[in-house]
Write a protein that binds this DNA or RNA. Structure first.
Lengths: 169, 169
DNA sequence: TATTGTTATACTCTATAACTATA
DNA sequence: TATAGTTATAGAGTATAACAATA
């Protein structure tokens, strides 16, 4: 937090971390505002629709989607209920395993996705990529994709126990 | 959202955008969990404490802090109230302008900051920087700092009107 | 017994607008 | 009149745990 004492991170790393977090949060806010105003969608609802729109399957199980979106199961049910109420998705028990629920886009859901996407893409282009050279786009991917893979697999469990030992000032 | 039709973004840009968002959100979740478990702090509360801990001033006005943290004023009052209840900060009217409220860290607030920081830094080091070459740290800063500056100044107002014209499929 | 998902409940956070007080 | 901040109120989202149904 304060910059006057550092153990594990140098000044450059700390600056990179702050910048990364600030960009992530400002960008998420801007995108969330757009999705809400343009499609009355919360970020999670938009993610669910996007995942359903990107698959070629007939439907996806809740658990399969939850694997791609970090989220509690109850919160997921709540959001899926919202989307179903609005007629954007359907919920149906899976044929092979009746415990599972298959989510599918309705025609209206697909329409909404098509209606919102251009503005979403244009917003991101303006905010992030308008002045970014192609080489920087590549650099961003090269640097962040390994971090993403690490974060995906790493439930941040062990960190605290290990870090606490450094807490003795 | 779906990748089969793109107007303003190439595949690389889209991939970079998705990766950036996912890293931001996974990292924020991990950090938020740590701050909650280790210091019972919400992300915003932690940010307020961090800003207060990083300044050399006697206290900061609400508005000065809000400038560094995107947040509504009422939400800010709510969070400041929480921190004051816990004895981590004090609120006092400013001497020169009695409309303003000066926030200051108490000794307990400073202690909490010192107690939580090592684990926070260590978590970020493990999740982000352990396997990242110094050159990549530089690259990340070079690419993202201009984006951050753009996002800071850019209230995402005009995007929708401009983007809607592309919506005619 | 374990897994998938839903629901009840309580809580936190956020947004809007009305309000107080100072400038 | 404009600005700084608070508060009332209402709503959205989230987490936990208890629950039902299926494997």
């Amino acid at each position: 937090m304060s910059a006057d004492e550092r153990q594990g991170l140098g000044a450059d790393q700390l600056a990179a971390y702050y910048t990364l977090m600030e960009v992530g949060s400002l960008l998420e806010q801007a995108v969330a505002q757009h999705l809400r105003e343009d499609g009355d969608l919360s970020p999670v609802q938009a993610q669910i629709l996007a995942v359903l729109g990107d698959t070629s399957e007939d439907g996806l199980r809740m658990t399969d989607i939850a694997d791609r979106i970090v989220y509690s199961r109850s919160g997921f049910s709540y959001q899926a209920g919202k989307l179903e109420q609005r007629g954007l998705i359907t919920r149906a028990p899976a044929a092979d395993d009746e415990r599972s629920t298959l989510l599918s886009l309705t025609a209206e859901g697909r329409d909404l996705l098509r209606r919102v996407r251009p503005g979403h893409v244009e917003l991101v282009r303006m905010l992030v990529f308008e002045a970014m050279p192609d080489a920087d786009v590549q650099a961003l991917r090269n640097v962040l994709e390994p971090v993403r893979d690490r974060l995906r697999q790493d439930p941040p469990r062990s960190a605290r126990a290990q870090a606490r030992r450094n807490t003795r000032d």
